[in-house]
Amino acid sequence: MSLFLAFLGVSFMVIATPGPDTAITIRNTLLGGRTAGVFTALGISSGQTIWALATSAGIVALLVASEPLFLAVKYAGAAYLVYLGFRALQEALRRSHPRVAAGLAKPARRLIAATAYRQGLISDLGNPKMAVFFASLLPQFVPPGGESFSALLGLGVVFAVMTLTWLALYATLVAKAGDFLRRPSIRRTIEAVTGIVLIGLGIRIATEHR
Results as ranks from 00 to 15, higher is better:
1 M>V: 11
2 S>G: 06
3 L>W: 10
3 L>V: 13
3 L>A: 13
4 F>N: 12
7 F>W: 10
8 L>R: 08
9 G>Y: 05
9 G>H: 06
9 G>M: 08
11 S>T: 13
15 I>A: 02
15 I>L: 02
16 A>R: 05
17 T>K: 04
17 T>G: 03
18 P>R: 10
18 P>M: 10
19 G>C: 03
22 T>R: 00
27 R>F: 00
29 T>C: 04
31 L>M: 10
32 G>S: 01
34 R>G: 02
34 R>F: 03
35 T>Q: 05
38 V>P: 00
38 V>L: 00
40 T>S: 07
41 A>T: 00
43 G>D: 08
49 T>D: 08
49 T>L: 14
50 I>D: 07
53 L>G: 12
53 L>H: 06
55 T>H: 08
57 A>R: 09
57 A>L: 15
58 G>S: 07
63 L>W: 00
67 E>C: 05
69 L>A: 15
69 L>R: 07
74 K>A: 04
75 Y>S: 06
76 A>T: 15
78 A>W: 03
80 Y>L: 11
80 Y>V: 11
82 V>T: 10
82 V>H: 08
83 Y>Q: 07
85 G>P: 08
90 Q>E: 11
91 E>W: 05
93 L>F: 14
93 L>T: 11
94 R>I: 09
95 R>Y: 06
96 S>Y: 01
102 A>L: 13
106 K>Q: 14
106 K>D: 12
106 K>G: 05
108 A>P: 14
108 A>G: 15
109 R>K: 14
109 R>G: 14
110 R>W: 08
110 R>Q: 14
111 L>W: 05
111 L>H: 09
112 I>Y: 04
114 A>W: 09
114 A>E: 14
117 Y>P: 01
117 Y>M: 04
121 L>R: 03
125 L>C: 06
125 L>S: 08
125 L>M: 10
128 P>E: 10
131 A>H: 01
132 V>Q: 01
133 F>T: 06
136 S>H: 06
137 L>Y: 03
139 P>I: 15
139 P>S: 15
140 Q>Y: 07
144 P>N: 10
146 G>R: 12
146 G>Q: 14
147 E>V: 12
149 F>T: 15
152 L>G: 07
153 L>V: 07
155 L>Q: 10
156 G>K: 01
157 V>D: 01
158 V>R: 09
158 V>Q: 07
158 V>Y: 04
159 F>D: 01
159 F>Q: 05
160 A>I: 00
161 V>R: 04
162 M>L: 09
164 L>F: 15
165 T>E: 03
166 W>A: 11
168 A>K: 00
169 L>S: 11
170 Y>L: 02
170 Y>T: 01
171 A>L: 04
172 T>G: 08
174 V>Y: 01
174 V>T: 06
175 A>I: 05
175 A>G: 10
175 A>E: 12
176 K>Q: 11
181 L>W: 00
183 R>F: 11
186 I>G: 02
188 R>G: 12
188 R>P: 07
192 A>E: 08
192 A>V: 02
193 V>A: 15
195 G>L: 00
195 G>D: 05
195 G>N: 04
198 L>F: 06
199 I>T: 03
200 G>C: 02
204 R>A: 09
205 I>P: 01
206 A>Y: 02
206 A>I: 04
208 E>F: 13
208 E>W: 12
209 H>V: 14
210 R>W: 07
